[in-house]
């Protein structure tokens, strides 16, 4: 479980996060949604320690991120898995080396044991026979899956995903979404996904946090989001023609 308590973050004069308080549940896929510029990625980067919030506290279970010493930070980072928007695979390394990287850095396993684990997670993300290829030699969807494999190879407690579907076709996007949800349940981890893709909201949003201009304006489940009266949320949800048509059909049927 991750809890954020009154997080504020500024860049210069501009306040990007204006006192956000919420909880991200363990064993669930938690989604942070909102329009571009709403502060989703900034919140995510505060959670993973890439940005330091000016105010507020972040709790990982019962420990406060800002009060951790260097050793506690190191231990926490070993428990974090991150899927970046572009995959962020190391392009000078093969797929196998990329996935093996966290094991090489943080474990004392033998190479054969590491290879076994790498093959296991690559199989889990439905990728085989790509071990010796370089990231540039595989498709965007495959890169995302390799990135997921790298994120889970060291059995993390927390998985963070920044726009996992960006740049993917709808079918591949669903595959990635389902994979994230399956892994979340299988490993019982706290997963936080930043997205503005409504398909993801429908597919995997077990808890949804909606941000607008750096403020949390709504939170709930993927069933509740279609029933809410909150105008900010409804204007976001029904901004696409497809969802508008679905809503119209539902209204007619009623």
């Amino acid at each position: 479980m991750i809890k954020v308590d009154n997080i504020r973050k500024r860049f210069g004069e501009e306040e990007i996060l204006k006192g956000i308080t919420t909880t991200f549940d363990k064993g669930k896929t938690n989604l942070i949604i909102g329009q571009s510029g709403s502060g989703k990625t900034v919140l995510l980067k505060c959670l993973i320690g890439l940005f330091q919030p000016e105010e507020g506290l972040i709790y990982f279970e019962d420990k406060i991120l800002q009060e951790m010493n260097e050793e506690e930070h190191r231990v926490l980072r070993e428990d974090l898995g991150m899927l970046f928007q572009g995959g962020a695979l190391f392009d000078s390394m093969t797929i196998e080396e990329n996935v093996m990287f966290p094991l090489r850095m943080f474990t004392t396993q033998k190479k054969s044991e590491m290879l076994e684990r790498v093959n296991e997670v690559l199989k889990r993300v439905n990728l085989e026979n790509v071990n010796k290829k370089y990231p540039a030699e595989i498709s965007g969807g495959m890169q995302k899956r390799v990135s997921i494999a790298r994120a889970i190879v060291n059995n993390p407690k927390y998985l963070f995903c920044d726009e996992p579907n960006s740049g993917l076709d709808p079918k591949t996007a669903i595959v990635i979404d389902n994979l994230i949800q399956e892994i979340t349940h299988e490993y019982n981890i706290t997963t936080i996904v930043v997205t503005h893709d409504m398909n993801s909201v429908m597919e995997i949003g077990e808890k949804i946090v909606f941000l607008k201009n750096g403020t949390l304006v709504w939170q709930g489940t993927n069933e509740e989001i279609f029933k809410t009266d909150n105008e900010d949320v409804t204007s976001f949800v029904y901004s696409s023609d497809l969802f508008k048509k679905i809503r119209d059909i539902q209204i007619k049927e009623q």
Partner: peptide, 16 residues
């Protein structure tokens, strides 16, 4: 290029 493609962020998140 590593900065642009978030590879440096990936290293930092891993605690490196």
């Amino acid at each position: 290029s590593m900065r642009v493609t978030e590879q440096i962020d990936a290293l930092e998140v891993m605690g490196i």
